[in-house]
């Protein structure tokens, strides 16, 4: 459902990812791991349209989206959870969710809201609270539920567990599993490599702006990651 062919992309005029070929099947959960600065986040941003693509093509669901603006990609069903700044802190939880469902009508919004809050019951009691006053974990929950407001079919998450306490990390991964269960295609970028591998079907390893390994998560979990990460360095 998502295909990147020879994609070179980055910020300004500087390429960060250099020649990526990846293809993701519908309903699959793919973990992307790799050392710091390997271009994982840039890859995610490239799929959602926040970088400059210099070469290659990106095809999503039969649409060529290489140079389409982010809002159009959202309409096509791509949702993205940035690593930082993933909620609007000065707006209430409810307003944050409303912004997620910007293109919905009033009635659709109500239905969707109900649906999302069922999946994230911890937010129900906090709808009028400003997002900036939530705890780190709650914020992540809000950000994930905001993603679902657009009824996406592909969800890209950039380190949803970063900076959270271990207990909270487990809660986040529970939610990730819940998303998998409803049949979403997931791209999961993670520092917690072991965690990500055990919650995915396939794993991509990125080093130095390239994908150096792509295999089933079962097999990757048997490898010594340090060797994989640094073999090319």
């Amino acid at each position: 459902m998502l295909e990147l062919r020879g994609v070179v992309a980055g910020y300004g005029r500087l390429p960060i990812i250099t020649g990526i070929d990846v293809s993701i099947r519908r309903g699959e959960t793919v973990a992307i791991i790799g050392p710091n600065g390997s271009g994982k986040s840039t890859l995610a941003k490239t799929v959602v349209g926040l970088t400059n693509v210099f070469e290659g093509t990106i095809i999503y669901d039969g649409h060529e989206i290489t140079h389409r603006p982010p809002s159009e990609r959202v309409r096509l069903g791509i949702a993205y959870l940035p690593q930082t700044g993933n909620v609007f802190p000065d707006m209430t939880v409810l307003e944050n969710l409303e912004m997620g469902g910007y293109s919905l009508s009033r009635d659709e919004l109500k239905v969707k809201l109900q649906e999302v809050l069922e999946m994230f019951p911890e937010l129900s009691g906090r709808l009028k609270q400003k997002a900036g006053t939530l705890s780190g974990g709650e914020r992540q929950m809000l950000a994930m539920s905001r993603l679902l407001m657009t009824s996406p079919s592909l969800v890209i998450m950039d380190e949803p567990s970063a900076g959270l306490a271990p207990k909270m990390v487990h809660r986040i991964f529970e939610k990730v599993d819940a998303l998998r269960k409803v049949g979403l295609t997931l791209l999961l970028i993670e520092q917690h490599a072991r965690m990500a591998i055990s919650h995915s079907e396939r794993t991509l390893v990125m080093v130095g702006g390239k994908v150096v390994l792509s295999d089933s998560s079962d097999r990757v979990s048997g490898l010594d990651l340090a060797t994989v990460f640094f073999q090319r360095a």
Partner: peptide, 9 residues
């Protein structure tokens, strides 16, 4: 950026 990826035009 967040506004863009939230689908706000």
């Amino acid at each position: 950026d967040l506004a863009m990826v939230s689908g706000i035009p």
